[in-house]
Design a protein around this nucleic acid. Sequence first.
RNA 1: GCCCCCAUCGUCUAGUGGCCUAGGACACCACCCUUUCAAGGUGGCGGCACGGGUUCGAAUCCCGUUGGGGGUGCCA
Length: 435
Amino acid sequence: MSDAPRYRFAPSPTGFFHVGGARTALYNWALAKKSGGTFVLRIEDTDEARNQPEWTQGIIDALAWIGIHQDDPTFEGPYFQSSYAEAHIAAAEQLHRDGRAYYCDLTGEQVQERAKQNGKPGYDGYSRDRGLEPGPGRVLRFRVPEGQTVVEDLVRGRVEFANDTIEDFVLLRGNGSPMFLLANVVDDVSMRVSHVVRAEEHLPNTPKQQMLWHALGHTPPTWAHVPVLVNEQRKKLSKRRDKVALEQFRDEGYLADAMVNYLMTLGWAPRGDIEIVPWQQIQDEFRLEDVSHSPAFFDLKKLASFNGEYIRALPLDDFIEACRPFLTGPDVPWTPQQFDEEVFRSIAPLAQTRLVVLPEIVALVDFLFLDAPPMDDAAFTKTFASAEANAVHTDAIDEYTTLSRWDHDTLKTTLEEIGTRHGLKLGKAQAPVRV
RNA sequence: GCCCCCAUCGUCUAGUGGCCUAGGACACCACCCUUUCAAGGUGGCGGCACGGGUUCGAAUCCCGUUGGGGGUGCCA
């Protein structure tokens, strides 16, 4: 058995891939790659019914987009948590036999009632010593030991929890099915996970998992809880309020490299003063110990800036290929007959410095393929407010129509002359023509 | 309520007791370049939450306050 580190990445199948999850995946991936270890993908849901194949495929596709490929030797999985229920239950029963867990017949309501009477929230350990046997409706609870639990966290350091603040949590539901916490630990043990790198929101349940590791007779993994990504209100990014689906960024014309680079600068920074760096450098330099402790605001503006830089840095052919989906899709305003690949090719270098996201390419080049391209009404009204502007425009149409040579210099000289005739300098004269 | 985490420009960060008059990036502003818009160049604005310690010396260590966030399910 190899002792190379094994990093597990465990998203739940929610129908889309969260940008925060993407960053965590990238952390795990960089570490696995750098160490010669393994990236273990586990689809996290104990309920078989919720595992939709297309959602799993969505996760795999999204991972592939950001460079985490299923066919890479570093990649292992996907595993489905729901298919290991038997092992989870067996582990729970073992815990019961060992006296580390006990059955309880209180319903959720009864637990709450007792809590109210006690003046203390949570389960009070009512059935600890009642020696109940398993039975329908009875849950199996973990017997939290006395003392304290110390979590050694790679990004946060030493975190202490007093065990008496942790209630005897449920391992098996009344219907016998395993809870996520248990399932997680059992799977981590059997998949020989050595490093658990996940979002900070999981820190409070880490002592529970750690106790389970010990109770099951194993040494807990190395923990690392990375800060969450937040919105402008400093709240954790959520699907309801915020744009968080990685797939959406992909579809809206963000480059994967830009996205990856940007995500990695949230909570971490490469050495030196340059933030835009190749993945290889990120992979080499990334360390969990250097990850920031505080939440990071996901800034669309900065992402846009990164994207623009990455677009500009693309070799021409790559740029053209990157634009293609947005030039030939069903939403494009021109017909395939109107679109001219060669014409596009010649103007592409000019367009390349003007894009923030790829779909903007359409509005930039549509006048080349359309008889009547959409106009900016505001700009039109403003520009054509003066008589001179209208005159320049009319003259330009006349003269451009009969021009012998249609090139940069001739066009410019002609327009300059027209402008002079109407008392306008080139800067002003060209405006109506451009509009 | 209880538990846990966090705190450097508006934002993302560098900084691990003297290299800090706190560096970079995004955003913003100005100027340059320019036939437009961009791109590019130059410059500017702007920050160590507060109060106590420790130390010859603190953004950096300790304590407290305040503020923010997360967790507290027979969800994952």
